[in-house]
């Protein structure tokens, strides 16, 4: 085993080892702080995008890397290669066959909401999350559900809610729901690659997330 593989295993172990269990009741603050992750960490994801413009969902998979509260990378490996790096308020996108682009989160309040939600969750920072979202928790420790509704009016214009499903200290699904009846569902798994069926529907996937 190379040093690199050892390090990788340790990282994955850090993700897998659960934080202390305080999840008897759906207390959102306690739940959120239990989701805290130690940077750096990587996790496999598969995401399905639903839109009224689409005949069938767009499905991509790859891995997410968490380097700290304001540092993420989303690396798509299937069906094409694309890396989106979000550092602070700045986004750079590098897609195969295209010129790399950079832009600012400022321009995209919807996107900023999503990123800040993600960052706050991984930092276990309930207070930061509650500054941008109305947070509602339900379910129990074995299958919990967090629903985040943006407070900012401009963000709410496009983003209806972010719904996160999980079990214990492990989030399983991140669903981003827009106001047009579309959205995306991202399944994550720290241990094994995940996949989404090509004929999945938004409601079906959401139900699947809730059932687990």
């Amino acid at each position: 085993m190379s040093v690199r593989n050892v390090a990788r295993s340790l990282l994955l172990a850090a993700l897998v080892v659960p934080a202390p269990r305080v999840l008897a009741a759906p207390d959102s603050a306690a739940l959120i702080s239990s989701l805290k992750r130690t940077a750096p960490a990587t996790i496999a994801f598969a995401e399905a995008r639903f839109s009224s413009l689409l005949r069938e969902p767009l499905i991509v998979s790859g891995e997410l890397a968490y380097g700290g509260p304001r540092d993420f990378e989303r690396r798509v490996t299937q069906p094409y290669r694309e890396t989106t790096a979000i550092r602070g308020d700045s986004v750079s996108v590098d897609r195969e066959g295209e010129q790399p682009r950079t832009f600012a989160l400022q321009r995209a309040p919807e996107l900023r909401g999503f990123v800040s939600a993600f960052g706050s969750l991984l930092a276990g920072d309930a207070a930061a999350l509650e500054r941008a979202f109305t947070v509602a928790a339900s379910g129990d420790a074995a299958a919990w559900r967090l629903e985040l509704t943006p407070i900012d009016a401009r963000a709410r214009h496009r983003l209806r809610a972010i719904v996160i499903h999980g079990s214990g200290a492990e989030p399983r699904c991140f669903a981003t729901l827009d106001t047009q009846g579309g959205g995306s569902v991202m399944l994550v798994d720290a241990e094994a690659p995940v996949s989404v069926a090509a004929d999945a529907s938004l409601d079906g996937l959401l139900a699947q997330c809730g059932a687990e």
Binding site: R49, S51, L58, F103
Partner: peptide, 13 residues
């Protein structure tokens, strides 16, 4: 379609 599947999809849609 790739734009739409990216984090900026919400923006461009």
């Amino acid at each position: 379609s790739r734009d739409l599947a990216s984090p900026a999809g919400l923006l461009i849609e």
